[in-house]
């Protein structure tokens, strides 16, 4: 009985203290308090909306988000734009549709059901426009990087002058959080680059935090539902376990044996 408790607690401690990938290089990432971490973690709605603004005004010129639809922007647990706002956002994009009855492709304003419009037609076009480097799709980017949100948050703020012993080719930049320190993306953010509608001061730090929050949501759109259900499920299981424990004690009291 005691052993079992010990075992379970050891497992939890070991895995909880482990980072995503144990093979990753040791770098101390910048820390900030994420509202979505923890048992009751939820997204900061305003931060998600600001993050969408940063994505669409800055990142989206190179990075696609092909698994998201405009309807997601109005869904529960996300940025929660109103339906009208989401419709307006969708309509501001030109979407290629068709073929129509004449067999011709045509463009029309976007609808809620459309996927996010991609900046490039295909991977080759994206590479051609970016000196051979493909700007990765951002839909699940946070989950596809060992350091997760802390890594993305740090990377956006990690641009600095290259040390003297590092020589950089044309179109390559120095970033202290990038694997190997060399990155093909120029520093995407600068203070005041976007103008937030809610009056928040658009510092690089603030924009990094907002856009990373947005990316966390895009990678895990059901995170809030998961946290809420998890709490209920675990409380339910604990209560049931206690009840079963006492039933077990009662049943086993009929025999001279320990449980």
């Amino acid at each position: 009985m005691k052993n079992l408790f010990k075992l379970f607690s050891i497992i939890i401690i070991i895995t909880a203290s482990n980072s995503y990938s144990f093979a990753a290089e040791k770098v101390e990432y910048l820390k900030t308090d994420w509202s979505f971490k923890g048992i009751f973690g939820k997204f900061d709605r305003a931060s998600l909306q600001r993050g969408y603004q940063v994505y669409t005004e800055v990142c989206a010129s190179c990075h696609s988000m092909k698994y998201l639809s405009y309807r997601n922007l109005a869904e529960k647990g996300g940025p929660e734009f109103s339906i009208a706002q989401a419709k307006a956002i969708a309509a501001s994009f030109e979407v290629t549709d068709g073929p129509n009855s004449d067999g011709e492709m045509f463009t029309r304003p976007g609808k809620l059901s459309d996927k996010f419009v991609m900046p490039y037609d295909n991977v080759k076009a994206a590479q051609a426009a970016n000196g051979g480097a493909y700007p990765p799709d951002m839909s699940v980017l946070v989950k596809a990087r060992g350091g997760g949100v802390d890594y993305i948050y740090s990377l956006l703020q990690g641009y600095e002058e290259a040390p003297n012993d590092v020589s950089l080719d044309d179109g390559v930049y120095y970033n202290k959080f990038m694997y190997g320190n060399k990155i093909r993306m120029a520093a995407p953010l600068s203070d005041g680059l976007v103008e937030y509608g809610d009056g928040t001061n658009a510092t690089v730090e603030q924009m990094s935090k907002d856009v990373t929050t947005f990316l966390m949501w895009s990678a895990e759109p059901h995170l809030e539902a998961r946290h809420q259900m998890g709490f209920k499920a675990i409380v339910y299981l604990i209560i049931l376990t206690v009840l079963v424990y006492f039933s077990m004690k009662k049943i086993w009291s009929r025999v001279e044996s320990e449980v």
Partner: peptide, 11 residues
């Protein structure tokens, strides 16, 4: 199942 649920819902 409690351990299982911890992983599924929180990690």
């Amino acid at each position: 199942m409690i351990v299982f649920a911890f992983f599924v819902f929180y990690a």
